[in-house]
Structures are given as structure tokens and as C-alpha cells.
Design a binder for these strands. Structure first.
Length: 749
DNA sequence: GGCGTAAGACTTTTT
DNA sequence: GTCTTACGCC
């Protein structure tokens, strides 16, 4: 029985799988069976006699790669270890480890994450004597990143730099790249760009890979950047067997250099392309699809298409209006409990939001109500300080040129070494033209100032001993334990004996466990370096172990490619989605609309959207309005419920609480942060109309703080902030909507 | 050199 | 509200 009969495919899907005559572009709308087609295609190719090792398939996450690999194995009943399937970044890293010598890199190079990049950039700016304020490190990194994403080395920019800033930026770009090279490190962008440079500079190498990969497949093609496009072109030019799958309506990584044009102009770039369009959706109900189609329709830059389904209408899509984000959190939690009582598993539900900061409220309310949840993304495990510290030790062991890691740990735990000691060693390293650790290990100890010798000899011993362990081929988990002991890091934490240090120890134990499982159960033949690479290139979704009971929470970006029975799409306000920062650029607004579209199309059966009137931000309450995207969706496609509830029980509760707090305030006369009421009480008619004008010196009242006088005004409209001197002597900064003129207060009373 | 407090920045999204 | 950085004191 052929593969093609083992997997259910509709006519278009089947055609796409069986076509074998040059470049193929598959427009696969959300939920149209994209993964199915991709899997079937690979399995079919293998059935046709292709060796798995001749297939190069790029997926968006490592998790997707793992799943696809096992599905292909199930279909073909063949082991397919040799197949190259993974993220662009991980496969480029693999190529660069093998071939990097052609561009000046050892196989042991380190991959720098965003935090490492930042510390390196700070060092670079310092060495060039450029002030942080004239060129913020993050900004410089952002610009350099976009250059690298389009494979533009600094040399290519030299003739175009007009302004002083641009010239400085080129200097910084060059110095940054040199610093990376010097310490045998690459950042995420380098993995892609350097592979392209490698192919350009070493044609023989390119030829080998062209020959090796007979078929190139790419998932989520709409999110590829120029570097990835060039990579694909180089790799597939002579045979033209490129199979890309994507959906321009789900292109959401433009800010990271992704070019939606890549998918829109694929046919032009790869002549003879055959296009397939999948429009039948198998995921969502008709009601949800209608809602999604209406949302995305507004976009100008898109290939025309419309999802359809043969499924039933399904439950209504709801749009709820809440008073503030806390009420939104409570209401969503209540709905979750309700659905759980009806038998829906937590794992079938997801709360999706635009920004990570929005997760907080939901975490709090779910924890309070003891509803299990998983937060995907945010500050990941591997970004925690103690984890990064441990990894820095290990990274140094693999690559002793890594100065960023050295700087992180040379005085951790404290060995009496500080900035002056660092400079002392850096001077020695400079003279010897070595990295910091190399200079320490091989240089003359007497060259260092006597007061630092004790501390530095401790560091020297640690790495000398660890290097021995490695030489004797001790397994990674054992080396890790040695490191914890020798470095004194564990002792430092046990010595602290606080709740915080206990948590850190727990995290480190978790890391140790992960390393043990990784080594013993999954990769007995691999070493520390491989573990470190996997850990830095892991996506947020990779670390997600979906549980039956736990409600899923993540950003819209993270949710791409996933599906859930019930989806709560929260915080749909203008300024959140679309993000305020993208207001000015219609192209960016379109990307935000696609982001909303991605969110909507995650839902299989039930979609509940919400927006709030007020949102807490930086300790302030900011007014908000329903997203412009919602406003452009016809009303008959959803059920609107105003649940803003300004008069109900919660408000009454808060009124009582606020009264108490107010009494406390008067007594304390000191406005300590804890004494400050966290939630102002507001009735609908409390809000001043936008037309109300405030002026300096005016008497006003506030529900909680009472009567006072305006001493300064900033901002305007709904964002206006007033500084008010109250009768009890306190001075507060307040949002205009919560303040009324004294006159209206008395009439209301 | 280490530690504490205070002021300031920060939030879009991530390999 | 939280995290990072700067500065002053021990």
C-alpha cells in the first residue's frame, strides 16, 4: 500500500504531494492541513526512493520538527534519523560547526542569546568610547540585526552612510562582528547570515550541500527573512526542487526581518513554480471562520483567498467588554471553571494575549482559584540568572575564548575580584593576544597584581580541574556536578539560606535533571557542546509539555501553528492590538491585523474575545477603547456583551475596602505604597467627560482622596495626568478620568 | 570591593 | 509594578 493511501488527503492536498516537476508554492490557510501535506510529501519522497539524508526540511519550531519526523517514520515504517529537519537556525548551526573553518570559526563556537549580545555590545561601545546615550546598545543591536537579516555586511554600507550616526554605527557593527569572531561566538542572526557568507565564499562547500540535498522543503515560508531566502536560493538553484508552504495572512515576524514579499513573489523568484491553494479549513467552526475572514479582509497586501468549511456553524463568537483587566481576568477564570464543569479539559483551552505583560493578571487569578495553568514564553527557564551562570561555566569549558561568559562568572561566587582585577587580566590577555580565560590558564601568574592572585588562582584551578574531567570523557552530568562543587556556586547558594536561594537551588537541580535525562535517555553519544546548543536554540514552544488539565497561556506570536478547542482572546484594545507603536505605519498595522487573525484561527470550537475600559500599567490606570480591528468586523458575526459592571457587587466591595484604606491613610498621614489603595472606586458617572477642562489651581475631588487642588498638568485628553495636592497634605499623580471638579462632586452628593 | 538604597527605564512580539 | 543602574558608605 502506498503512502498516499495511508493518509487522508483532499484533491488539492493530494495534487500538491504528488506533483514533482520543479518549485512548488502551497498557500495553506490556517487549519487547512498544512502539516499533513508536508508530512505526506516527505513520506512520499522517501517512498519514491529518496534517502532521508537527501531531504532538507525547515520548520518553525524544534517541536514541530520532532513531531514531523515521527509522523514520517510512522508513515514510511523507516527510521529517518539522517533527515535534516529542524529550524533554520539549528540546521545552519550544524552546517557552520562542520564548515565554519572556511570563515574563521572553530567547530566549538558559542551561540550568543539576546542577553549575551547585549553585554558584548556594551563592551564594544565602551572600547570605542561611544556614549551609551548617543547610541543605546539595544538600538545598535536592532539595526545591526536587520542588516544581518538581509545579509548586508558593514563593508557594503560604507558608501551609503551619510550621517555621523550612521558612520558610527558602521564602526560599531564592524567592531561587534570582530568581537564575536575573536571569542568564537555567533549571535542568532549570524547563524543564518554566516551560512550564506560561507556558501558565497566557499563554492566547493556549497556544491557539496547542493548535491546532498535533493529536495528542500520549508514550512511557514511567509516568515522567512532575506538571509533565509538567499540560503534557499543558493541551495536549490540548480535542481529547483523547492517546496514551500505558508500563508501570507499569518506573516507576523516582519519586525524580525521577515519579508512577506518572499511568499508573494515566490513565483517570480523561482520560475516555473506551480501554485496550490488550500482553502478548506478542518479546524474551526463556520462561525469562527466567518469572524476570521471578516477580520483579515481589511488587509490590502495579501493574496486573495477565503477559508471555508463543511462543518456546522457552531457556538457563537463572543466579544465581552469589561471594566478593567482584573475584571477581565476574573471573568475568564470563571468561564474556565464553568467549561471545566462541563467536561472541557484545561489543556483544551488557551488564553492568548498580545504582550507578555498581560499574562500577570491571569496568572494571579488562576493561581488564586487553584486552576492549573502553563505559561509559555515570558522569562524562560534558561534565562534565569542562576541557570545562565551555570551555563556560562559550561560554555567556557567548551569555548575558552568566550569572554562574555568569563566576565559573568569570574567573581561568582565572590572571590574578591572586581573591575580593577578584570582590567588587570584583560591587559595581560591583550598582550598575549588571548582570551581572558586562556591568558589566565597559560599566562604567567606573576604578571597579575598580588592582591588578585588568590582570587584568580581559584578560577584557574576550577577550569584546570574541569578540563581534566572533560579529557577523561566524563559524562556531561558528572562534569556539571563537578562544576557546581568546584566553583563554589552551590555552597554560595546553600550558605544564603533564604527562600530565594532555595528556589535557585531547585532550578539548578532541575537543570541537572534535564541534563541527565538528555544524556542518558536521549543523546548518549553527544557532549556538553550539543546540550548547550540545544538549550540556546530551543523555542518557547519546544519547552512546552502540554498537560491535560493545565490551561495554556501565551502570546499571539507563540500561538502560531497551534490549535485549541476554546480560545480566550483578551486585551483587544487599540494600542494593545494594534500596538500603539505601530499606529503610524499602515504596513505594520496590517501585520497586527494578521496577528489577530492568527489568534482567531487558533480556535476550534469556541472563541471568546474581550476588551477592557481601563488597564493597569506601570501602576497607573490607563483608559482604552475596543480595537479598531473589532470595530471593522460586522456586528452580526458575533455576540457582544457589555459586562463592564460598574455598579455590581465588585464595585460595592471595593468601595468598602477603599473607605477603610482612606481612613488608614488619614491616620498614617504617610503615603506608603502599601497604604495606597490599589483599585480606585469608580462609578460610571464618576468619569469626567472628555470635554471637561482642567486648569492649574482648580479645586477637584477624587472618590478616595477627597478634595484637593491641581498643582500640575501633563498629557492631554484621556491620557492627561494631574498632580493634585489634597487636603490631607498628600500629593498624588492621577489620571484625569478619575477626577471631577469640586462642583460636580457636591451636586452629586 | 561589596552591599545597600534610590532613581530611572521599561513593554510589543522571539530564533 | 518590576528590573536595572548609579551612587554612597562600609
Amino acid at each position: 500500500m502506498s503512502i498516499i493511501d495511508k493518509i487522508v488527503l483532499n484533491p488539492v492536498q493530494r495534487e500538491a504531494v504528488l506533483y514533482d516537476d520543479g518549485p512548488q508554492l502551497v498557500f495553506a490557510g490556517a487549519g487547512t492541513g498544512k502539516t499533513r501535506v508536508l508530512t505526506a510529501k516527505i513520506a512520499w519522497l522517501i517512498e519514491q526512493g529518496l534517502y532521508p539524508a537527501e531531504i532538507f526540511a525547515a520548520t518553525f519550531t524544534n517541536k514541530a520538527a520532532r513531531e514531523m519526523r515521527s509522523r514520517v517514520e510512522a508513515l514510511t515504517s523507516l527510521p529517518v534519523e539522517g533527515m535534516w529537519i529542524g529550524t533554520f537556525h539549528s540546521m545552519c548551526a550544524r552546517i557552520l560547526r562542520r564548515e565554519g573553518t572556511h570563515i574563521g570559526y572553530l567547530p566549538s563556537f558559542t551561540i550568543y542569546d539576546t542577553a549575551d549580545q547585549l553585554s558584548l555590545m556594551k563592551k564594544v561601545l565602551k572600547s570605542l568610547q561611544i556614549d551609551d546615550r548617543s547610541m543605546p546598545p539595544r538600538q545598535a543591536l536592532g539595526k545591526i540585526s536587520s542588516y544581518k537579516n538581509s545579509c548586508t555586511p558593514p563593508e557594503k554600507l560604507e558608501n551609503e552612510a551619510r550621517s555621523f550616526y550612521d558612520q558610527e554605527l558602521i564602526r560599531v557593527y564592524k567592531a561587534y562582528q570582530k568581537a564575536l569572531r575573536d571569542q568564537q561566538a555567533m549571535d542568532f542572526d549570524d547563524l543564518l547570515a554566516n551560512t550564506v557568507y560561507l556558501f558565497e565564499r566557499a563554492p566547493a562547500v556549497l556544491e557539496r550541500y547542493r548535491h546532498a540535498f535533493k529536495h528542500v522543503l520549508v514550512d511557514e515560508y511567509q516568515d522567512t527573512n532575506t538571509a533565509q531566502f538567499l540560503f534557499l536560493k543558493l541551495l536549490s538553484q540548480n535542481h529547483g526542487r523547492v517546496f514551500v508552504v505558508g500563508d501570507d495572512d499569518q506573516s507576523i515576524y516582519g519586525w524580525r526581518g521577515a519579508q512577506i514579499e518572499n511568499i508573494l513573489s515566490f513565483e517570480r523568484e523561482f520560475p516555473g513554480t506551480k501554485v496550490f491553494t488550500l482553502e478548506q479549513n478542518y479546524r474551526s467552526t463556520k462561525v469562527i471562520l466567518d469572524f476570521a475572514n471578516a477580520a483579515i479582509k481589511e488587509n490590502q497586501t495579501r493574496a486573495p483567498k477565503k477559508l471555508w468549511t463543511s462543518r456546522d456553524s457552531g457556538d457563537e463568537v463572543t466579544v465581552n467588554r469589561f471594566r478593567d483587566d482584573r475584571q477581565e481576568g476574573d471573568a475568564v477564570a470563571e468561564r474556565i471553571e464553568e467549561l471545566q464543569r462541563k467536561g472541557v479539559k484545561g489543556g483544551d483551552m488557551a488564553i492568548l494575549f498580545r504582550t507578555n505583560a498581560q499574562s500577570r493578571v491571569f496568572e494571579e487569578v488562576l493561581r488564586r482559584r487553584k486552576i492549573p495553568y502553563i505559561l509559555i514564553g515570558g522569562i524562560s527557564f534558561y534565562e534565569r540568572a542562576e541557570i545562565k551562570d551555570c551555563l556560562a561555566y559550561l560554555r567556557l569549558l567548551v569555548n575558552p575564548k568566550d569572554n562574555v561568559s568569563f566576565e559573568r562568572i569570574f567573581n561568582l561566587p565572590s572571590r574578591g575580584l572586581g573591575e580593577k582585577a578584570y582590567e588587570n587580566l584583560a591587559e595581560l590577555a591583550g598582550k598575549r593576544n588571548e582570551s581572558l580565560l586562556e591568558a589566565l590558564l597559560t599566562g604567567d601568574p606573576a604578571a597579575l597584581a598580588p592582591r588578585y592572585q588568590q582570587g584568580f588562582s581559584e578560577v584557574r584551578d576550577i577550569f584546570a580541574l574541569l578540563a581534566d574531567c572533560e579529557k577523561q570523557h566524563e559524562p556531561p552530568p558528572q562534569i556539571f556536578n563537578e562544576m557546581l562543587k568546584l566553583s563554589g556556586y552551590m555552597d554560595m547558594l546553600t550558605g544564603e539560606d533564604t527562600e530565594e536561594s532555595a528556589g535557585r537551588i531547585e532550578n539548578i537541580n532541575e537543570l541537572a535533571n534535564a541534563l541527565t535525562i538528555w544524556t542518558e535517555e536521549q543523546h548518549p553519544d553527544k557532549g556538553l557542546a550539543d546540550f548547550l546548543e540545544e538549550v540556546t536554540l530551543a523555542t518557547d514552544v519546544d519547552a512546552w509539555d502540554q498537560k491535560d488539565e493545565a490551561v495554556n497561556m501565551m502570546t499571539l506570536h507563540c500561538a502560531k501553528g497551534l490549535e485549541f478547542r476554546c480560545v480566550f482572546l483578551v486585551g483587544l484594545e487599540d494600542g494593545i492590538i494594534p500596538s500603539r507603536q505601530n499606529f503610524d505605519d499602515e504596513k505594520k498595522v496590517e501585520e497586527e491585523r494578521r496577528l489577530l487573525y492568527v489568534g482567531i484561527t487558533r480556535a476550534m470550537q469556541r472563541l471568546e474575545c474581550s476588551h477592557v475600559d481601563y488597564r493597569w500599567r506601570f501602576g497607573d490606570l490607563i483608559p482604552g477603547y475596543p480595537s479598531r480591528f473589532l470595530q471593522s468586523i460586522p456586528q452580526e458575526l458575533y455576540t457582544f456583551r457589555d459586562r463592564s459592571n460598574y455598579f455590581g457587587t465588585p464595585a460595592a466591595e471595593e468601595k468598602k475596602k477603599a473607605k477603610k484604606e482612606r481612613a488608614g491613610l488619614r491616620q498614617a498621614s504617610l503615603l506608603t505604597p502599601s497604604a495606597r489603595p490599589r483599585t480606585p472606586v469608580y462609578d460610571r458617572d464618576d468619569f469626567s467627560q472628555e470635554t471637561v477642562e482642567f486648569r492649574m489651581g482648580q479645586f477637584v475631588t477624587h472618590r478616595i482622596y477627597g478634595r484637593g487642588r491641581i498643582v500640575s498638568i501633563s498629557g492631554f485628553g484621556e491620557d492627561m495626568k494631574l498632580s493634585v495636592l489634597f487636603n490631607d497634605g498628600s500629593r498624588k499623580k492621577l489620571m484625569a478620568p478619575y477626577i471631577r471638579t469640586a462642583l460636580s462632586y457636591t451636586t452629586n452628593k
